[in-house]
Design a protein around this nucleic acid. Structure first.
Length: 577
RNA sequence: GGACUUGUAGUGUAGCUUGGAUAGCACAGAAGCCUCCGGAGCUUCAGACCCGAGUUCGAAUCUCGGCAGGUCCGCCA
């Protein structure tokens, strides 16, 4: 697999700089950086750090280094120049533009990594509808999965079904024992909204009535031991709740490749095995009442030092089963990949405990991407306090507002059904993008106007750029245009090609840093680059056939690049909107 | 109280990992651009690194201390 043009260029510059450094007798060289203005070059070497060793002013050093760069071995480097204290290297952009024109798919393709990424995200308890506070998990997780794929990894996106434990037990007990007539009406006619009423009522009842609390506790115990009979009895309840949640996630564009039940790791003996292994660790200890713990005082600073992995009766806690689950996951990718988790910041301590335990067991720990909460101006989202925005409602509202926009613009030319379909795509993409573009560790205060914004740095801007390209291509094809016999790419083509060429490197960087929001930033840059080109280069009206073919080819390449980029963000690439 | 995390124009953000050349983008504001390949677009103007020390030739970026917001500190999940 050949390197993308950007990677090949960087490697070449590194080799040239190393050769120049050797000629001047320099042991170490500063890191390359990207100049602020592309007119200066594509990579620059700052010479400040060399001033002390050489006892010369940085600009003089830059001139010397530039002169020492060998003239041979230049394939992607078209110019080397000293600019003040920097040595700048310019990429052969005509060659890049030619590569984009010849085979844009090859330019967009990141080299296959031959590595698998098992990526766990969302994994919400199946006891009620998803709200916007939780929605950041599928957005970050699903986008990251798509970015990893674009970066050349094989990805399995997994949902960990927490089907043991109190939440499911409470839901099931409520469903079996409560009279629907005694419950408040469901917020909407959808199974997860219907079922959450039983969960809430049972939860409230357990707080007031010790007998109910005892019954639920007993059910939890039966579940934790993964009693098959009980499991089969509970499964239809949480299963139908999950089907409602899945409907929401599917509409939201989030896809899973697999679902792993928590009960599996109990049934297959992993949990028992994990408990045994943990007990044998040097840092393991036992309380007088029989509860087992790991003493993490020497490993975690300032946190709770005792991490309990069994109760006094010897049963496992959630975190113990999580360790067993991760040991199982590690086995799945052993020697051929790695684990990535997307978790809310409230799981930080728990992830630290699980990770530390995995280290002690010599099992590869996952890398974890934490996101901060989406809260309301009034405070943290809470269903019980009636301070919550459901994802279903947000998507409805987004689609409704988008419909108003489509209707205003295209009302007299498009059929109703098509306008509805466009509105659905635009509205949901806007909601996703408005969160996806923000660095995960930044807290977000939810405001309807911002979540639903269609202006500026937003999904409709990206979708519009693609629709423009697609529409233009359609007309060009009808006019019989092709990209054969194209003229030589000039500055305009080179600028657009440069933006297109950044796709694969951006995906690789975003994957390496677990930073899906970088893909969103890139998408805005690519769309802006296309809009610049579109503004300055008429295609259909171009008189010169060679120029026209060149422009057609560039727009065709840009359309493909935009479609690929939108795909990593789960934004539909519409041909018309 | 402790640990972790965030603080960038009026507002929302990028850049911080790997310190460097005019801190990028958008909304709102001001002024413009369709005899148009769709104006959900484009051009111009104005406006910001929480405070204070330190390290460095150089700090939005690294370190320390404040201040402010968020999260966590269950033999719950």
């Amino acid at each position: 697999m050949t390197d993308s043009p950007g990677a090949a260029f960087r490697a070449e510059v590194a080799a040239l700089v190393a050769a120049a450094g050797a000629k001047l007798g320099l042991a170490s060289l500063p890191a390359l950086e990207v100049p602020p203005d592309p007119a200066m070059g594509d990579l620059g070497l700052p010479c400040f750090g060399l001033a002390k060793a050489l006892r010369k002013a940085p600009p003089a050093i830059a001139a010397e280094v530039a002169a020492a760069v060998p003239a041979t071995g230049r394939s992607w480097v078209s110019a080397v120049s000293a600019a003040g204290p920097y040595v700048n290297f310019t990429m052969d952009r005509a060659r890049l533009a030619a590569a984009v024109l010849a085979d844009v798919e090859a330019v967009l393709r990141a080299p296959t990594k031959g590595q698998k990424v098992l990526l766990e995200h969302t994994s919400a308890n199946p006891n009620g509808p998803l709200h916007v506070g939780r929605a950041r998990n599928p957005i970050v997780g699903d986008t990251l999965a798509r970015v990893y794929r674009a970066a050349g990894y094989e990805v399995e996106a997994q949902y960990y079904m927490d089907n043991l434990g109190r939440q499911v037990a409470t839901l099931a007990w409520g469903k079996w024992n409560l009279d629907p007539a005694s419950l408040p009406p469901a917020a909407r006619d959808k199974v997860d909204h219907d079922l959450v009423r039983y969960y809430q009522a049972a939860h409230d009842l357990a707080k007031k009535d010790p007998a109910v609390a005892e019954k639920i506790k007993h059910l939890v115990e039966q579940l934790e031991s993964a009693d098959p009979a009980i499991l089969e009895k509970v499964r239809p309840v949480y299963g139908s709740c999950f089907s409602g949640m899945q409907e929401t996630l599917t509409r939201f564009g989030a896809r899973y490749d697999s679902i792993k039940d928590e009960s599996d790791v109990v049934l297959d003996g992993s949990v028992a095995k994990t408990i045994g292994a943990l007990k044998r660790l040097p840092i393991a200890g036992v309380e007088p009442d029989g509860a087992n713990f790991l003493d993490l005082a020497s490993l975690l600073k300032g946190q709770k030092d005792k991490f309990f992995f069994t109760r006094k009766d010897g049963t496992s806690v959630y975190a113990t089963r999580d360790i067993a689950y991760h040991a199982w996951k590690a086995e799945q990718v052993k020697g051929k990949g790695r684990l990535v988790n997307v978790l809310g910041e409230d799981h930080k301590l728990q992830a630290l405990q699980v990770g530390t335990a995995l280290d002690a067991l010599h099992v590869e720990r996952p890398t974890v991407l934490f996101y901060s909460f989406v809260s309301l101006p009034e405070g943290k989202m809470s269903t019980r306090a009636n301070r919550v925005v459901f994802l279903d409602d947000l998507m409805d509202e987004a689609a409704e507002r988008a419909y108003a926009e489509v209707k205003a613009r295209r009302g007299d030319e498009l059929p109703e059904a098509q306008m509805r379909a466009i509105a659905e795509a635009v509205g949901i993409a806007a909601v996703r993008f408005n969160i996806a573009r923000i660095q995960p560790e930044k807290p977000i205060e939810f405001r309807w106007e911002e979540a639903l914004s269609f202006d500026g740095d937003a999904a409709p801007y990206l979708m519009y750029a693609h629709a423009r390209a697609a529409n233009l291509l359609k007309k060009a094809k009808e006019a019989g245009l092709t990209s054969r016999g194209a003229a030589t790419p000039a500055a305009g083509e080179q600028a657009l090609a440069h933006a297109i060429g950044r796709f694969a490197p951006t995906a690789e960087e975003a994957a390496a840093q677990n930073a899906p929001h970088r893909m969103a930033a890139y998408a805005l840059q690519l769309a802006a680059a296309f809009n610049d080109y579109y503004r300055d280069h008429r295609v259909l009206e171009c008189e010169d056939p060679a120029q026209r073919a060149l422009r057609f080819g560039m727009v065709a390449a840009a359309q493909k690049a935009l479609a690929r980029t939108l795909g990593t963000l789960a934004i539909p690439a519409l041909d018309t909107m």
